[in-house]
């Protein structure tokens, strides 16, 4: 993916840059709002990572508003030290696609950026069938089969699996699952998500030879065909 990173803190910028390049992405960087805006409007990116507070008079929200004002729909992930829920809402209202507060774990950032990049690619037609390896999901009849064998799932397990399949090959974090599958925006003390995933594994992986849902340490989960 081509990614633009606009971040003024040199340590954080270098850290994110290195991580994204290691993950195989092509990354351009800017350390102020003016350069960031110039790159964002003149180049074509799959994802833009924007720090909200930038030096040089143009902050992240301004860049975002300018982009959206030009009908540029590039997915934007906002980074901010402002953890305030209202700030988050303001960022998303301005046209941001995701919002992360500093400090963050790189694995979480990578997972979210990759999820956004995939969303940016338009689908040719609304899908009614999702397939990963021998796992098939029919969105119309709401049935799941693996290797031709039907798997019975609760509605919530179905949605969880659907999210994993749609992001197959990508790491999804617990927070992403809580936000996207359950629409909850809080930080549970207990391992609620792990329990749900492990139940899903009982049904999707256990009866078969090869597990598909893998745990990535310090990050989250990934669903893979191999």
């Amino acid at each position: 993916m081509r990614i633009l990173l606009v971040e003024d803190d040199p340590t954080v910028r270098a850290f994110v840059l290195k991580g994204l390049r290691e993950a195989g992405h092509v990354v351009d960087e800017a350390d102020n709002g003016k350069d960031g805006l110039f790159l964002a409007v003149s180049e074509n990116y799959d994802v833009v990572i924007l720090d909200r507070m930038l030096p040089g008079g143009i902050d992240g929200l301004r860049i975002l508003e300018t982009l959206r004002g030009q009908k540029n729909a590039t997915p934007v992930l906002l980074l901010s030290a402002l953890a305030d829920v209202d700030e988050r809402v303001a960022g998303l209202k301005a046209g941001g696609d995701d919002y992360m507060t500093k400090p963050f774990a790189f694995s979480e950032l990578l997972a979210r950026v990759e999820a956004l990049g995939r969303r940016g690619r338009p689908e040719s037609a609304p899908q009614t069938r999702l397939v990963v390896g021998d796992l098939e999901m029919d969105l119309l009849s709401r049935t799941v089969k693996r290797g031709g064998e039907k798997i019975d799932l609760q509605p919530r397990e179905f949605r969880l699996l659907e999210f994993l399949i749609r992001h197959a090959g990508q790491v999804v974090t617990r927070t992403m699952l809580l936000e996207r599958v359950w629409d909850y925006h809080f930080d549970p003390q207990t391992n609620v998500i792990d329990v749900h995933v492990s139940r899903l594994r009982q049904k999707v992986d256990k009866p078969f030879d090869k597990p598909m849902i893998h745990t990535i340490r310090n990050a989250g989960y990934i669903l893979r065909a191999d």
């Binding site: 359950w182 909850y184 207990t190 391992n191 609620v192 792990d194 329990v195 749900h196 492990s198 139940r199």
Partner: peptide, 14 residues
């Protein structure tokens, strides 16, 4: 009800 559904599994797990 939503929260019950979220927590049901982890409560049982405990």
């Amino acid at each position: 009800e939503g929260l019950t559904e979220l927590y049901d599994a982890s409560v049982e797990d405990a």
